[in-house]
């Protein structure tokens, strides 16, 4: 917040008597922000801020979640280096990050397609957005079923083309792509709505000016429209990155990380280690979470830096 921020130093009325109520009256504007903040800040500190540091600390211990913690230094991280399952998860996370980005151009394409004013278009837009409102559990079940090699719709399509259906979710090579495709469905819907709102706010003068300059179709999109959609693109990229790194629900519902752990991602692998049926390894799980957090922190920083810059620009 820069100098022109709304709050100004109020002048205090001269003190006539120094009763408690009077001290409150004179200082209320200085104390008020802290009092307004306190309930939310305490909750947030207890459940979000402190646990981040606790996790970092727990990652240095061997702990089953119930008994005594044993300090083992960086041993959990050393173990990660030799853990094939960790590398599989990391590799899958990168595939997720890269392919999830398709949601951004796909969302833009659908938004461009739907940015018209024909009869009933509002309902069509809502229905296109619909998958985002569904729980990932439902999306996962729907797609698991869609992919079923026995009777799924995809199998029917394969048969229609005369090829043998592939059991996507039971195939180590395809499984991650199959889950990502399911995740893209609601994510594209999200990006679409961001772009539709963006397109709605584009100044028509600039479009007309572009038309006069002979810009049409793709060149218009590239030179006139996209620069104006920058805020929408930024938010779309941010929520897509976060969505990709948070990919837990779909993996858990569609495959439980299988077959043979080939569809694990860091978020899922962490959960599996910390709360697995073969005994809890909280320390090891925490170290996986710290790695995931380290990846995320890069994106959080980018977001914050941009937000600060925008905040300065605006006032």
């Amino acid at each position: 917040m820069s100098a022109s921020s709304p709050a100004q130093e109020g002048h205090c009325p001269p003190a006539l008597h120094s009763s408690g109520a009077d001290i409150w009256r004179r200082n209320q504007r200085r104390l008020a922000p802290y009092l307004f903040l306190a309930p939310g800040a305490i909750m947030f500190a207890v459940y979000v801020v402190v646990p981040i540091f606790q996790s970092m600390w727990i990652s240095l211990y061997d702990w089953d979640g119930i008994g005594e913690k044993t300090f083992i230094g960086l041993a959990n991280y050393v173990e990660l280096f030799d853990d094939d399952a960790f590398y599989t998860s990391l590799k899958n996370n990168i595939i997720w990050l890269v392919l999830y980005m398709l949601a951004v151009p796909a969302g833009l394409a659908i938004a461009l397609f739907l940015n018209q004013t024909v009869f009933g278009i509002r309902l069509v837009k809502s229905l296109f957005f619909f998958p985002f409102v569904l729980s990932q559990v439902v999306v996962g079940l729907v797609f698991a079923w869609f992919y079923d090699p026995g009777f799924g719709l995809l199998a029917e399509l394969f048969k229609a083309f005369g090829t043998k259906p592939i059991a996507i979710l039971a195939d180590e090579d395809y499984v991650t792509y199959g889950i990502i495709a399911a995740g893209l469905w609601p994510q594209i819907a999200y990006c679409m709505i961001l772009y539709l709102t963006g397109l709605n706010n584009i100044s028509s003068e600039q479009i007309e000016a572009g038309r006069l300059d002979g810009a049409r179709g793709l060149s218009m999109l590239w030179h006139v429209i996209l620069p104006q959609l920058k805020p929408a693109t930024f938010i779309a990229v941010v929520v897509t990155v976060i969505g990709a790194l948070r990919s837990f629900d779909l993996v858990s519902i569609m495959t439980d990380g299988g077959p043979y752990g080939s569809s694990r991602v860091l978020a899922y692998y962490m959960y599996e280690q910390a709360l697995s049926e073969y005994g809890y390894r909280m320390g090891y799980g925490a170290s996986i979470a710290v790695v995931l957090f380290a990846i995320m922190i890069v994106y959080i920083s980018i977001f914050l830096v941009r937000m600060i810059a925008e905040d300065r620009e605006r006032r």
């Binding site: 996790s55 727990i58 837990f248 978020a267 799980g285 710290v290």
Partner: peptide, 12 residues
């Protein structure tokens, strides 16, 4: 705090 992965909060 909004963008933090849930897993880093899970154990604590």
């Amino acid at each position: 705090g909004n963008f933090v992965p849930f897993q880093i909060l899970m154990v604590p």
